[in-house]
């Protein structure tokens, strides 16, 4: 379903010393430093799998998601999703994926949520019948019926996140990318979101790739974990594999993760 081989992504970052003098110098000759956001990344994900994609800030998680969702083109390597190369067949590819960026909204700010949904129906050219079915199901599972007619700007973060997730599933994609979906949510909303994702995966066999810093998300949702640091895939296994690496199975998950970061010197 998702096949990634030797993926590399390099950014050019301009560097300069502090101070006016170097700022002036920098105006004429820029010095670039190459930063490897992703190096030789290879993995594959089967249909219906749920994968937790973790790593410290700046490890390359978002870059990977952006490449897989067709926003970025990598320098090297291949990536085939549902038989397509995302950045070569962008429109066909994105019809079959859903993307949630936890920190950014895709809903129109000033109009009721249902209006955003209606517009998405036309953007994705969803048939009326399929739209009604998806909507009914999503409204039930995410308990949206009371907030559908509220403008997005008046929703609480938890309500909004539920709507964001619904918005990215209206066209019934086979793959769902979730970039920090529980960030900033309260306990009740977090549980609701997790619960929903789990059910969605069970019922529709939706493949889910989830990045998060919240280890409880990982524990509740994913059987498989990929740990990435400095652009490299360091570990690919279950939660227990992760714990074995550190050798302290009694600690809480955040401590396990911190110990791992230390072990791989990626913090």
């Amino acid at each position: 379903m998702i096949q990634v081989e030797n993926l590399s992504k390099i950014y050019k970052v301009s560097r300069r010393e502090a101070g006016m003098k170097s700022a002036w110098k920098n105006l004429f000759s820029r010095q670039y430093e190459e930063v490897k956001a992703i190096q030789n990344l290879s993995f594959s994900v089967k249909k219906g799998e749920m994968v937790g994609y973790i790593g410290p800030n700046g490890a390359g998680k978002s870059s990977t998601i952006k490449i897989l969702s067709g926003i970025l083109t990598p320098e090297e390597g291949t990536c085939i999703i549902n038989g397509r190369i995302p950045w070569k067949e962008r429109k066909a590819h994105v019809k079959d994926i859903g993307v949630v960026f936890g920190q950014r909204s895709q809903l129109w700010w000033d109009v009721p949520v249902i209006d955003s949904f209606e517009l998405l129906k036309d953007i994705y050219q969803i048939s009326k019948e399929q739209y009604n079915n998806s909507l009914e199901e999503l409204v039930n599972c995410l308990s949206l019926s009371t907030i559908l007619k509220t403008p997005t700007r008046q929703l609480s973060l938890g309500q909004r996140m539920r709507c964001e997730i619904a918005a990215s599933l209206l066209h019934n994609p086979s793959i769902l990318f979730l970039d920090e979906p529980t960030i900033g949510l309260d306990a009740v909303s977090k549980l609701a979101v997790r619960d929903f994702i789990k059910k969605r995966n069970e019922v529709h066999k939706t493949t889910v790739i989830l990045t998060t810093h919240d280890m409880q998300d990982i524990e509740a949702l994913t059987s498989r974990i990929m740990l990435i640091g400095r652009g490299r895939l360091l570990l690919d296994g279950t939660l227990d594999n992760l714990k074995e690496q550190v050798g302290q199975s009694n600690n809480n998950l955040d401590e396990v993760l911190a110990a791992l970061y230390k072990k791989y010197k990626i913090q």
Binding site: F101, R104, I123, Y124
Partner: peptide, 13 residues
Amino acid sequence: GNGQFDRMLVRPR
């Protein structure tokens, strides 16, 4: 700047 363009890239239009 606000990432809206990324969003456009993941829509089939």
